[in-house]
Design a protein around this nucleic acid. Sequence first.
RNA 1: GCGCCUGUAGCUCAACCGGAUAGAGCAACGGACUUCUAAUCCGUAGGUUGGAGGUUCAAGUCCUCUCAGGCGCGCCA
Length: 561
Amino acid sequence: MVKVKDVSALLKDLLKDAVLEVALEKGLPPGEVPEVLLERPRHEGQGDWATNIAMLLAKPLKTRPRELAGEIVSRIGKDPHLEKMEVAGPGFINFFVTNLWVRDVIDAAVKERENYGRSTQGKGKKVQVEFVSANPTGPLHVGHGRGAAVGDMTAGLLEYAGWEVEREYYINDAGLQMNLLGQSTQARYFEILGVSDKAPFPENGYKGDYIYDLAREVLERDGKKHLEVPLEESFPVFQAYAANTILDGIREDLALFGVKFDVWFSEKSLYEKGLVESALAFLKARGHAYEKDGALWFRTTAFGDDKDRVLVRSNGVTTYFASDVAYHKEKFDRGFDLVIDVWGADHHGYVPRMKAAVEALGRERDALQILLIQFVNLLRGGHQVSMSTRSGEFVTLKEVLDEVGVDAARFFFAMRRCDSHLDFDLELAKKASTDNPVFYVQYAHARIESIMREAASRKIDIPDPGTVDVDLLLEPEEKALAKRIARFPEEIEKAASELAAHRIAFFAYDLASDFHAFYNAHRVLGVEEAVSKARLCLVEATRVALTNALGILRVKAPERM
RNA sequence: GCGCCUGUAGCUCAACCGGAUAGAGCAACGGACUUCUAAUCCGUAGGUUGGAGGUUCAAGUCCUCUCAGGCGCGCCA
């Protein structure tokens, strides 16, 4: 039996031979023959596969595309999987395959189960996905949620495509923002005790209500003792308490959202281990860094950035960029073949210098991929909700999860390309109606489980797909469904190589849609036995593909709804 | 001023390395449950892909210009 994925490979080989033969005959050196590609035609009636090769070759061979296409077709060898070929449109060659693939795909899905669709694309390669990485200065908001979903799903997708994947959270626990957090908490503590003039609230401090909560907790734990000592002395207590408490909250929120990190990496640890220093030394030794105006600069312009960047300020303080260079050096030193950073789109100006850093570290520019997550426009009751951590006015991720549920939130984020702005309407996501795609997809799964329960109660087993008579699955809804299942492995590879996890969500939706259409048109149980058996196999194959797709997104596939 | 992202049906979004007739859902209208779950399905209607040029056999996709929205442009993070 030919594996589903191999049908296209098989066609491609036949096609390639024919193309080379024709090209050679017309005097075109094999080196100048463009790459032969097979694509999925957009429309029904244009076959299962198509190629544009005749159009590409028409010019160098000085012939008309359609004529050439005919010539190529006449040289393509026979194969039991190949039903017929057609020359269509401006010069496409359309391939129609025989029904053999229907059994092939059902067989593959049912037998491979949780491995159906897995790819070896990333085999033997290690990738790190770093995401969220929010400063521990406040709770996660919806924007972080989108980053968390995209990062986690991208990681899941790459795992499925054969990569060894590590999920990492970078904790920005060093620097100015952490000081501000400590000062803000300290100031609120004094304010609560009615002596706010003794510890004024810092400019640009964190104004959210949660800072009051932290201050009150310190007060409960320690009493008024921090009033008695100088501010510098009590400051570390406030900072440590605030940062640890907030980070714990972040961990809890992410756990609730179904996101698990393999590594929580502390920025502070880079300094403690001397890695920032050694990274700077590395750059200096290779002539990528120089001193000017009392500061240390990184010559990022040598790698395409539009200006050089400061690593160490003239006051001796290292910049955020310096620790980021050190961090990325450390990542590559850990042996990753690919490093993916998921950032908020407001950091896009940072991309060229980070890419420059990667090159200066002696890596390919593309060894670092940065996914920029566009802003989430949070809507509630039609009007926009502001989301700035500093102003303290935001809706937290937890609030959203409590309101709309984890699955709805994850799927909502998954249904958009990450570089597209996202309107997240809470009222809409919460509705258990057709508006909400996650219920639509989950309902398809619940229906499948229902069929399986019914079959079990009637003592009917799922037969071996090898015994299925493919000619019993010729209804348009059956073929459409089988075809969709067959595309799952392609979809994985495509999505993985584009780092486009949203494709999986769309696939799941389309698969559910094909299933619902099938379900409404045909009965699985209570029809003629051979047909029933064939359909049971098809349903089981659907269940496998749907479960696997949802598994990548970490969205539940419920047995009942 | 310079740079990045976005602009596709009334609304929210898809569209593979440039391919054939630009697809879904919602909203609107008309239909379908005596059966394995109607949170479903089927049908109708809806478009100059913001605009103008260009490259190409072929452009939503690439190039130039332009308009609109968002975001960046620090010895901040």
